[in-house]
């Protein structure tokens, strides 16, 4: 028996969530004594996939069928399942990315396994795979178990550490041919949101809301984000009013994120906004209203006018960088 991870790639490169999934599987393997395998789908160099060895993966099964160079939900799920069956995987770990979440339910049905999504703890294989996951949009935590002997898990992005645990690794081609019907819905074009940092993967997110007064004032937000290597985000009304692009909208009805640092500027902290960001590990709030609900969940706060505070922050960061 063994553990399989879905090592997601984009443009031929492994994505950070793939390493989170690998670390997760590796920690699990240490408990259960099983080997960690990975499946990667689509074009990627063997030398790239070998990097998974640094994170404890002993075998990478590479599915490389021309027809599957672009993401196709059913075909990808079938390929991961085929690999899982060939190695008698007991646990399949996927990153909680858009594509990971899109294929996990199919894989669970195919394997007749239980599916735990958005897991934030290491499952306990000796105790019904006992695990915790976030629920009610971050307002609750749910502990769950299963009586199934097989399990599929998606691990929350930025929800698990990445740690090198080097091992000997082999990359082997895995022969797999998709059914024509499984290629019905295949990506034919990708539209990149921006050259910026992906919001779901970013370590730091600088976010602003209606307190900004208008889209013309966002220059300082972008400058601050640029200095910190951060992604930018916004509240729902600012996206709805067209001040900011929709893909930046975070919250209950937008994107849910869990960066290491979330900086909220001129955002009141409505419950629906918090639902998308309260899993952030550290929160800084800048708001002129001391009663703004966001302060209730803040680790660091400044009560003040953002048009004065943000430029000062930018200067202070520049000064600190210059001094270092």
């Amino acid at each position: 028996m063994s553990i399989l991870i879905f090592a997601e790639t984009a443009d031929g490169q492994l994505k950070k969530p793939a390493f989170e999934a690998a670390t997760y599987a590796c920690d699990l393997a240490q408990k259960s004594g099983e080997a960690v395998h990975a499946v990667a789908i689509g074009p990627a160099e063997a030398s790239t996939l070998e990097k998974l060895g640094q994170y404890g993966v002993s075998t990478v099964h590479h599915v490389h069928d021309e027809a599957m160079n672009a993401f196709a939900n059913a075909a990808y799920a079938a390929a991961v399942t085929a690999v899982a069956e060939s190695i008698d995987a007991r646990v399949v770990v996927l990153p909680q990315t858009y594509n990971g979440r899109a294929i996990a339910p199919r894989i669970a049905v195919k394997l007749d396994a239980a599916l735990f999504s958005g897991v934030i703890s290491l499952v306990d294989p000796a105790n019904g795979f006992d695990a915790t996951r976030s629920a009610y949009s971050g307002k609750g935590i749910e502990e769950i178990k299963t009586q199934c002997d097989k399990l599929v898990i998606t691990v929350k992005a930025n929800g698990y550490r990445v740690e090198a645990q080097p091992t000997e690794v082999t990359v082997a081609a895995f022969a797999f041919q998709p059914e024509a019907s499984d290629l019905n819905a295949i990506a034919r074009e990708l539209i990149k949101a921006s050259e910026g940092i992906s919001l779901t993967e970013a370590e730091i997110v600088v976010s602003a809301g209606r307190g900004m007064k208008g889209p013309e004032n966002w220059g300082m937000i972008e400058e601050l984000a640029g200095l910190l290597g951060a992604a930018t985000a916004c509240s729902k009304p600012t996206a709805d009013m067209g001040w900011r692009p929709h893909h930046e909208h975070v919250g209950q009805t937008g994107i849910q994120i869990a960066p290491n640092l979330y900086i909220a500027i001129g955002i009141s902290g409505a419950i629906q906004h918090l639902a998308g960001v309260s899993s952030s590990k550290n929160i800084v709030v800048i708001n002129k209203d001391p009663e703004a609900p966001f302060f209730k969940v803040a680790d660091y706060g400044i009560v003040g006018d953002l048009f004065e505070v943000v430029p000062r922050l930018i200067e202070a960061i520049k000064a600190a960088r210059a001094a270092a």
């Binding site: 239980a114 599916l115 735990f116 019904g128 006992d130 976030s134 629920a135 971050g138 307002k139 609750g140 935590i141 749910e142 502990e143 769950i144 178990k145 299963t146 009586q147 309260s278 899993s279 929160i283 709030v285 302060f295 209730k296 969940v297 803040a298 680790d299 660091y300 706060g301």
Partner: peptide, 15 residues
Amino acid sequence: VDPVKLTYPPARGNT
């Protein structure tokens, strides 16, 4: 999947 227990995330806001 068997639900076991619902709890709250660690309290925050020691600002």
